[in-house]
Nucleic acid binder design. Sequence first.
DNA 1: CTGAAAGCGCTAACAG
DNA 2: CTGTTAGCGCTTTCAG
Lengths: 333, 333
Amino acid sequence: MRDVAALAGVGLKTVSRVVNGEPNVAAETQARVRAAAEQLDFRPDIHAGNLRRTDRKTRTIGLVVGSVANPFSGALHRGVEDLAASRGTAVFASSLDDDATRETRIVSEMLSRRVDGLILTTVLKNQSYLAPEQQRGTVLAFVDREPLGIEADTIVTDNAEAAAAATAHLVAVGHRRLAYLGDRAEIWTASQRRTGFLRQLGRVGVATADIPVIEGLHDEASAFAATLRLLDSPSPPTALFTSQNLVTIGTIRALRTRGLHNRIALFGFDDIPLGDMIEPGVSVVAQNPYEMGRLAAARVFARLDGDDSSFSTVVVPSTLIHRGSGDIAPPAD
Amino acid sequence: MRDVAALAGVGLKTVSRVVNGEPNVAAETQARVRAAAEQLDFRPDIHAGNLRRTDRKTRTIGLVVGSVANPFSGALHRGVEDLAASRGTAVFASSLDDDATRETRIVSEMLSRRVDGLILTTVLKNQSYLAPEQQRGTVLAFVDREPLGIEADTIVTDNAEAAAAATAHLVAVGHRRLAYLGDRAEIWTASQRRTGFLRQLGRVGVATADIPVIEGLHDEASAFAATLRLLDSPSPPTALFTSQNLVTIGTIRALRTRGLHNRIALFGFDDIPLGDMIEPGVSVVAQNPYEMGRLAAARVFARLDGDDSSFSTVVVPSTLIHRGSGDIAPPAD
DNA sequence: CTGAAAGCGCTAACAG
DNA sequence: CTGTTAGCGCTTTCAG
């Protein structure tokens, strides 16, 4: 910038004014400065400026998602990114791979880069470690999973209720021998979905003691193996509830391997791509990750713009999509 | 940092030394500094430091992808992110939505944030505008699409050759009345694929004059509509080549709408999720976007670590996956 | 309308 | 082993 000033034959501050579009610069001076900047390929260093700037906004936010292996995160990211781009804000995205030990490390790296806001899908049990940072003015928003030990804007799906609705449907079709296949119980959403599943069974008087509840499934492979074990057991279930898209896909593969995809009912949580084109169509609870990302970003930007209303929790509606697999009736026996 | 120094009763530089793990600090002093830092929730500002640091590395790279709506980008991002995370480097990700006007703006924003490197999937015809930046030391790598007007490490799939191989297969099965359904011709990969398709037909003596070449398809909806028009034409093709995953999906929907999915052959470029589970299985050219992301990131990091060998272009192999749709024979007539 | 001086949070270079 | 001084590239403040 000094070079630009020298070349244009003006003071440092004048260049600064031109670059930032501040008023009170003669048109002719402006032109000279711009020409000089162009010639030297000058590019202002946003961070150097922020060091002295009063608002200290880096126009950068961080997004921490649970697992990039899951298309859910992709859609969420897109939602955030779409809103951020329209505001000229850059987005750091990083994945936890649902590994709790990475959470503090990644968050800390983002904070060192002085992000204005942080959108988090957390894995850790407790987020109270973020309180000092929040105090300092960093805007926090939680998506998909509710935080513990800290208050902030939160965007979630009503996981328990949606899981219960799907379960209710399976029961209504006539199933009593159900099974639950889900992710690790430490993950907030997974435990919520399990709760919803079991609670609904309890409500309608299905004894949950005999219901297999298999947890810790994280990818297609583990879900595939777990489903096969279930199908090969002495008294296999007549309906399956899978608590996550990757698990749903693994389960479908297992059902097909045993030729049971048209005989055993299946309801999955999270939509899966092309779920309407396979046979039978896959019934799912569809969340709206794109919208969740948008809403979270919107909250963050509102806070950055000065909104200081009390923290809110927004529940994004999810929908049951009936495509066939959830309507398979139990065998007459 | 000054506050930490005051609280610990040491000089500013000593705090700096402790924070950066530099040697020559007494263990006892170190402990005192750490305690003070903890107490004040001190977090070093990486950018302030970089202002003075000699290497001037922000440990940040930028990733510019074509379209986040495409799962290809998600996998690419994951590849980059996986490598970057292991190096403690943060990744800015931004999407162009294949909109050329956004390219310069987004790149410029990233450069203002002083990224050490930039991994780009470009839309613009020409990338020479990046030359000054490259001169300045910013490491550039291009993925998926070859740059023009600038030299840098490049990671691509051999699009033309893979498209030709898929086309050859369709011809080998007996098809002569083929059609091409593809993305906008300005997109480098799209034009490469079209070239490969047409060249292969030329090679085997299929007159390309009568072959419908439909371009400008960008999503499922437009591909769906275009395919329907094709199917409803007086002399519909017996085999389709779709040059991109979203187009492939739209085309499949159209084929199913007309009940022709088992009568008209289909070969797609890019794999689609669950492509093996629908009926018929979808034959595709599968690229390896995750690996492409990893390789691009690896090149960037190697350069940052001082590698100054001449620029290389790596061609990541793609594979033909035969799942059925490409093996449908033309009607005997 | 313009510029000079001070200083943001940190590290480099050099003294002690 | 530790502290002091200067200065990174920019914006602020204030005086022309």
